[in-house]
Simulated scan of single mutants.
Amino acid sequence: MQAVVNNPKITVIRPQGSLNAANALEFERDLTTALAQNRSSCLVVDLEQVEALDCAGLLALVSALKLAQSLGRRFSLCSVSPSIRIIFELTQLDRVFEIFEGTALF
Results as ranks from 00 to 15, higher is better:
Q92F: 03
I10K: 09
Q16A: 02
F88I: 01
S83P: 14
L53W: 03
G17S: 12
S76C: 10
I86Y: 08
L31P: 15
A36L: 10
A68N: 03
R14W: 00
A24H: 11
S83N: 15
L67P: 09
F97L: 02
Q16T: 09
Q37F: 09
L77D: 00
L67N: 11
F106T: 02
A36K: 14
A104K: 04
R73I: 04
C42L: 13
T11S: 12
L53S: 07
D46W: 03
D30Y: 09
S76E: 14
D46F: 05
L65G: 12
A36H: 13
L105F: 00
S40Y: 14
I87C: 01
V4I: 10
L71G: 00
V45I: 10
G102D: 14
V4T: 08
I13T: 02
G72C: 02
V80I: 10
S18M: 01
E28P: 08
L59Q: 07
I13F: 03
R73M: 10
V80F: 07
F27Q: 07
R73D: 09
L53T: 08
Q37S: 08
T32V: 13
F106S: 03
T11C: 08
I13C: 00
S76I: 09
N38A: 11
L65H: 15
V44L: 11
A56F: 11
I84L: 11
R29M: 04
L19P: 10
D46I: 04
V4R: 03
A21M: 11
E26P: 06
D46Q: 12
R85K: 11
E89H: 04
F27G: 03
A24P: 15
A21W: 13
L77Y: 06
G57F: 08
K9L: 06
F27P: 15
S79Y: 10
R14A: 00
